[in-house]
Design a protein around this nucleic acid. Sequence first.
DNA 1: AATTCTATTTGCGCTGGCGCAAAGAGGTTT
DNA 2: AAACCTCTTTGCGCCAGCGCAAATAGAATT
Lengths: 254, 254
Amino acid sequence: MELACNLCQNLVMDGQAPRKTLPRLDESLLIHLPPFSRLAKRQIRTILDQATSRRYDEGAAVFHEGDPADRFFMLLDGYVRVIRITETGEQVTALHIPAGQLLGFARAIGRDTYPATAVAATESIALSWPTRLWDTFLADYDGFATETYKTLGYRMGEMNTRIVELATQQVEQRVANALLRLINQTGRKVDGGIEIDFPITRQDLSELTATTLHTVSRLLSGWEKRGLVESRRKRIKVCNPHALVVLSQGQASD
Amino acid sequence: MELACNLCQNLVMDGQAPRKTLPRLDESLLIHLPPFSRLAKRQIRTILDQATSRRYDEGAAVFHEGDPADRFFMLLDGYVRVIRITETGEQVTALHIPAGQLLGFARAIGRDTYPATAVAATESIALSWPTRLWDTFLADYDGFATETYKTLGYRMGEMNTRIVELATQQVEQRVANALLRLINQTGRKVDGGIEIDFPITRQDLSELTATTLHTVSRLLSGWEKRGLVESRRKRIKVCNPHALVVLSQGQASD
DNA sequence: AATTCTATTTGCGCTGGCGCAAAGAGGTTT
DNA sequence: AAACCTCTTTGCGCCAGCGCAAATAGAATT
């Protein structure tokens, strides 16, 4: 289920400018992605011709909470972090979205502004379409509706899980769970373990688990001493997922 | 936006048996509810003829997490609490649903089991239909899709808010917020304030705010001394909403 | 009226994890 | 290579709020 990234090559070459439609978007960009997989080549062509593609630097916002939801997106490469910011300026990360998923489809849930801010967790590429096309997509493209609502359901499940975790678990369990979820969803097998596929700081992890960067740092240090994880600056590798599972569920193993 | 409860009278008379379709469901039951409000009388008739109505005692489950989602529901009267139960047996309340809303429409988000358990917070009445009719409703009834997805969006917003609250606020603020939300959504004006329209214990409130019944009790006692609320067994009345708003957002006064 | 059950209140001690502070360490720019 | 910046680590003290325990108070049942 990996994205053929060489397809994106020409997009990446585009450089940092927020550029509009490119010479030629290849149909194979979309053909394997669930929302579009049932469509004929001609339909894909139409869809691509209406799309705008753009590259986002690490940390760049794809859209902002509260902005009018005038476009919806398909993430082609990279990872996006969905965050909310409180009145007091604290950030809370709601979700990570991997390549191959739709995002910013506020329209699907009857909203006309984005409910949260989306930030590229790593250099990313996304296609986008004007929101007015949303209903067309839904009506005209077989399987599109079903798939997007599945995505919606999945994200609701994720949110629910986070609520339950925040409500019932200790910090150590929450961080362990977050780490496990990250390697499941965005993990990359490397020598000696599984590494999170994008740069992630202690601060980021703390925003994902409702704690402080200090506590996350202490936990990771402890785990590293016990050989559960290895970490460098902005990189975390899980060496012993099973031990983490134990931590995430049960009592502290000491 | 109140439900004409006399319409339900004959249903209530039905007693406690889990009964099937009743002699005659009146069309005015649905005509004013958003998902159906655009429909012709004949359509409503068809919908009602396919519906099963049932009364739920306080505390009775409408459906259980994990069960096959073979029916979807419209709450006609009462309130339903949506809860999840952790492996360790703790309950977490996700949401309260007031009369007039759909629930259990797992199908809409591509699921075939219920993602949570729904329990009647007070004696309640709901219509239900077999899930296989869902797609028919969506396709045939104008405005139905839009409305249900609005509901979905609203609930996602609620969940998001809870996540942010749990992640960033102190217990006192969370309880104040929960109380405010409850009186906004399900409040009933009574002498000297606004009362939550269904029986709710300290325990319930603690499951809604991720704390313990003890802490909730202490907070309510304190607030009662200061005249912000009045409470009896299973009943809470908010006398000074504004002061609660202050508590819910800012620093503890005093 | 007595019993039982559920809901609420309150006291007290303990601790997980936050806040503060300061020092290291790895990267990047000049 | 020096200066700067961001990220990480670690120590220490404190306190919000939990856990435990026990008393009280309404409702419901007998």
